[in-house]
Simulated assay, not measured.
Amino acid sequence: MLTQFGMSIPLIAAPMSGGPTTPAMVSAATQAGGLGLLAAGYKTVEAIEAEIKTVRAAGIPFGVNVFAPNPLPVDPNDYHAYAAIIQREADQFGLTLPPEPIEDTDKFDEKIALLVDDPVPMVSFTFGIPPGTVIAALRQAGSVVVQTVTTAEEAAQARDAGVDMLAVQAAVAGGHSGTLTPRRPLTPVPLVDLVEQIVATVGLPVLAAGGLATPGAVADVMRAGAAAAVVGTVLLRATESGASATHQAALTNPARTETVLTHAFTGRPARGLRNAFIDAHEAEAPLGYPALHYLTTSLRKAAAAAGKPDYVHLWAGTGYRHATAEATSDILGRLASDL
């Protein structure tokens, strides 16, 4: 199914929302023989439309990743208690945080309407499985539809919903987990084992994601039956990366010695470099997405701009030490060197 994308190396640049993935990174990944996906999460419809136009002008295949609604409502009392604590952190930046929970769908319906009216070669979903009518409409428009899953059970659900391919994500992946059940602890199954299990039981092509930062790791998942490997963290310091300077610097800071799963920043499990914010708030943070995401957004942006990494969501997978400051094409070429 990936043959239609003309890939000469089985590598996909992960759609990293919040800034790291840029149209330049998407274009560079595809021009290097792989494939790039734009990240529609947290963007306006107009912004993603403009990014699609930019990449399309290069005349290359690409994809778009969309957050599918899978609400994780926050208890209002828990939100108010946590907001009062986080406001004290925000005071140093002169910020006023949202006093009430903000619950929305990240403009899901509008983004789907755009992608049906102006189709792109690939559309992938994360967080939730969209309705079958949405999947069918995108496929009818000519898009290959991919669903992010984290277990064999989720993979079977996605297959039954009618998707074409699966992005199988291990718990070691950086950024948000695509788990469909964010209230349950993530199960740390090695990616190779997860890929083998899903390839054997579900019968759809698999894109393997999570902790893939070396040529050997990429080769291992390909041998396990993956159709391609998805890499994200290893591209955070790439020439084309839009990650903040604060985030990029933290990846090389010898004092940042581990990644941890946290819901303190967004109310949904995500993996990042351990920092003071996580240490201070993980135990008291409620679950609740996107309410906690909106609660902490302005604080995180202000801290990144001020060069204060201990208040920033330093999303990173376990292979973060392999992130290098060079062109996306060079990084992908090296990752494909053992194939």
Rank of each mutant, 00 (worst) to 15 (best):
V192C: 02
F67W: 13
M165N: 02
D279K: 05
G242R: 14
G267R: 06
G19S: 06
A81K: 15
H80C: 11
P99S: 02
V146T: 09
G232H: 04
Y79W: 07
V206T: 06
A84P: 10
T96Y: 07
E103Q: 15
T262V: 12
V221R: 00
V116P: 00
E46P: 07
A291S: 09
R139Y: 04
R56W: 07
D330F: 12
E153G: 15
F108Y: 10
L251D: 11
E196V: 10
A84S: 14
G232Q: 01
A291N: 02
G63N: 04
M122P: 01
E284R: 03
T30N: 11
H313L: 15
V172W: 03
D118L: 13
L299G: 00
F93I: 05
A325M: 15
L37W: 05
Q147G: 10
L261D: 14
E100C: 03
L261R: 14
V123S: 01
T246S: 00
G34I: 01
L299W: 01
P290E: 11
E100S: 11
A170S: 15
A113L: 12
E196T: 11
L335K: 03
P215Q: 02
G94L: 09
A84R: 11
T148S: 10
M122G: 06
G6C: 08
P61S: 06
R139P: 00
A24K: 15
G307C: 06
L38W: 06
L314V: 08
H313S: 15
S244V: 05
G142R: 05
P98T: 12
T214C: 01
G19L: 11
T151K: 05
